[in-house]
Computed example of a mutant assay.
Amino acid sequence: MYKRTLFILIIIFSCNIFYAQNINHKMKLGFHYGFGNEIKSNDFSHTNNYYKLQLYYALKSGKNFKYELLMQPELNLATHQLLNVYFIQPDDPNYIEKRQKFSNLRNVKEYVLNLGFIIRKPISKSFSIYLVGSVGPMIIDNETERLSKGFAFSDVLALGFSSKIDKITFDIRPNIRHVSNGGLQSPNLGFNTINIEFGFSFSI
């Protein structure tokens, strides 16, 4: 329950930060849904689907490119299963118990706050492509054989395509995501997923 409360507080705090800067109507608010899978592995399976608020703030418009800040409160719902029990070695304490434990399909919730930077290239008045890189802290509610429960980081690199119809902008955004805890706890092998997300945004 406290994790849900923390996630809601993060969203409220994020909105307050961006509204405080909304002087020249440079902001957009949006929502994205995405899903993906671990880059091919014979040792485990890992799938995820996620929901993101998108809070954009326009920094600068140049002759060829536009630059934006992006804040993304996110709820990520993942499933994980150890496929190769021999991945857990006998020198690991309680290795038999861990093999049995992690061989069962596990649900993992992640509460994330990513901060990103966008470089956007307008192609026409209504269409643009962009690169976005983001990083941020997260809380994981369940452990796996690859990553401990608790605090970790989410890093995302994405290529996006935007199309504006009237006052609404629609996005398609393939991305690569890496999750680990920076060596703060063990284990820390983490996950690498390939995802695609869809969403919309509008000026506020």
Results as ranks from 00 to 15, higher is better:
P93S: 01
P90G: 05
K121W: 09
Q81S: 01
F87A: 11
K28F: 11
R99G: 02
Y19M: 11
N42H: 13
D141Y: 01
D171R: 03
G116W: 04
P187V: 03
D43S: 15
S180I: 03
S134Q: 11
K66T: 10
N114C: 07
L53D: 00
N114D: 13
I123S: 07
G62M: 08
F170E: 03
I140S: 02
N107S: 14
I168F: 05
S203N: 15
R173S: 06
K40G: 12
F87T: 12
N37Q: 12
L131K: 00
N181C: 02
Y130Q: 07
A158H: 01
P137V: 09
F198Q: 05
L82V: 05
I88R: 02
V179M: 04
S162F: 00
K63N: 13
I11N: 05
S134C: 00
I196V: 15
L69I: 10
K101F: 15
K98N: 04
A78D: 14
V179H: 02
E97V: 09
L184P: 02
L77W: 07
R106F: 08
Y2F: 10
I8N: 12
V132R: 01
A78W: 04
N107Q: 12
R146E: 07
R120C: 11
G183N: 03
S128Y: 05
I39L: 13
A158N: 05
F117V: 06
D92H: 11
I11A: 12
Q89D: 11
R120P: 05
N48K: 00
I204H: 10
A20C: 10
K121A: 11
I123F: 13
M138A: 14
G34S: 08
H25Q: 12
L131V: 10
A152S: 10
Y2K: 12
S124P: 05
G34N: 06
Y51V: 08
F7W: 15
G190V: 08
Y56K: 05
I119L: 14
R177V: 06
K101N: 12
F117E: 04
Y86C: 02
N22H: 09
M1D: 14
K125Q: 15
F117H: 02
F127L: 11
N76S: 09
L70P: 04
S162W: 01
Y57M: 02
T144C: 07
K26G: 15
Q81A: 01
N107R: 08
S148D: 13
N94D: 15
N64R: 11
F127G: 00
C15L: 15
I165T: 02
E145K: 00
L9P: 00
A20V: 05
S103T: 06
D141N: 13
V112E: 10
F198K: 04
S186T: 13
F65S: 06
N181V: 01
R120Y: 02
G34H: 07
R106T: 14
E74P: 02
I118L: 07
L184T: 11
L157F: 11
F18K: 01
E110M: 05
L82Q: 03
K63I: 14
G150E: 01
F44Y: 15
G36K: 05
N192I: 10
F102W: 06
S180V: 02
S180D: 04
G136E: 10
R106L: 15
A58P: 00
G34T: 08
Y111V: 05
L77K: 06
K63R: 13
G62Y: 09
T5I: 15
D155S: 12
T5G: 15
S203P: 07
F170Y: 08
G183V: 00
I12A: 12
L9E: 08
I172A: 04
K98R: 07
I8K: 09
